[in-house]
């Protein structure tokens, strides 16, 4: 490997500092014993205890987790089917539109997706009386819609690089496509499905704009509660909440990264020693 130039090294140093200093400051000030959130006044855990006594935040967090669990699972199911469909060469009616529909939610501005979903819920309520109110169910439907696109892309790219000899062998031996998918394809793409589920879960937990549009009275997700708190300014209990979320996510990413790295190393070793 060639030595990196000083310019690149400096740029990387400042780049990573730019990415991490705000997060570090956020975490440090969550331990601040002061109600003015930006003036340091000694170490304290008071904002953490305040957080656990705040019923509004606890309820919102539980609702967000519930929505994320359900929507990530269903999005993984639908997105995997979409990924399988996209990798078939057999052209089917409307394939081009299907490809477009998969790719569009990835880049669509959230305000447009949110507004359009709200309007479809209102219109269908007018027409067929369903959904009779907006809330958890409509947020779940909205989250499935945009995260299944991410799932489909992940599954599709995994399928594209898959060793197809097993699938071909099974097909040649006359296995039903359903059996081939269930017994061979799905186990092969299981790690990608897990990664896709995690992404869908995170996207759902993180979404503010779309949920704000399609939610109804009484169902405020965690980002909605945080947003209404912080639009008035910095509040230290949000720092505490952020620290908890960042710790959980950070640990999750580091552990899954480590597991994937180990798996990769094992594969490399296996390839090297036949």
């Amino acid at each position: 490997m060639k030595q990196r130039s000083y310019f690149v090294t400096t740029a990387m140093f400042f780049g990573y500092a730019f990415l991490y200093v705000p997060i570090a400051v956020l975490v440090i000030y969550s331990f601040n014993d002061s109600s003015i959130p930006t003036v340091w006044n000694g170490f304290s855990l008071r904002w953490y205890s305040a957080l656990f006594e705040n019923e509004q935040i606890i309820n919102a967090a539980l609702l967000s987790l519930k929505i994320a669990l359900i929507s990530a699972t269903l999005a993984t199911f639908l997105g995997t089917l979409a990924g399988l469909a996209l990798t078939q060469t057999n052209t089917f009616k409307g394939r081009l539109l299907f490809t477009g529909l998969i790719a569009a939610p990835l880049v669509m501005p959230e305000v447009i997706t949110g507004l359009s979903l709200l309007l479809v819920f209102i219109s269908s309520e007018q027409l067929i009386g369903w959904p009779d109110s907006r809330g958890t169910l409509t947020i779940i439907i909205a989250h499935i819609t945009f995260s299944m696109a991410f799932v489909a892309i992940i599954i599709q790219s995994r399928l594209a690089t898959l060793d197809k000899s097993l699938i071909e062998a099974a097909t040649d031996l006359g296995a039903h496509p359903f059996r081939v998918t269930l017994d061979i394809t799905l186990p092969l793409i299981a790690p990608a499905m897990l990664a896709a589920w995690l992404l869908a879960f995170t996207l759902s937990l993180d979404d503010l704009v779309i949920a704000s549009f399609v939610s109804g009275p009484g169902s405020s997700t965690l980002p909605m509660v945080i947003f209404s708190k912080v639009r008035l300014g910095v509040t230290p209990d949000v720092n505490a909440l952020a620290t908890i979320i960042i710790t959980i996510v950070g640990l999750g990413v580091v552990i899954s990264g480590w597991v994937m790295y180990r798996q990769e190393q094992r594969t490399i070793r296996r390839v090297q020693q036949p």
Binding site: P22, I23, D206, I226
Partner: peptide
Amino acid sequence: MLVILPFWTSFLLRVYAWMGMLSTHGL
């Protein structure tokens, strides 16, 4: 992984982090 990590943490909270950085008594 260090580039992807902030992407997995909450978008809203990362924007909020800048409120603390930029405020009158901020860093």
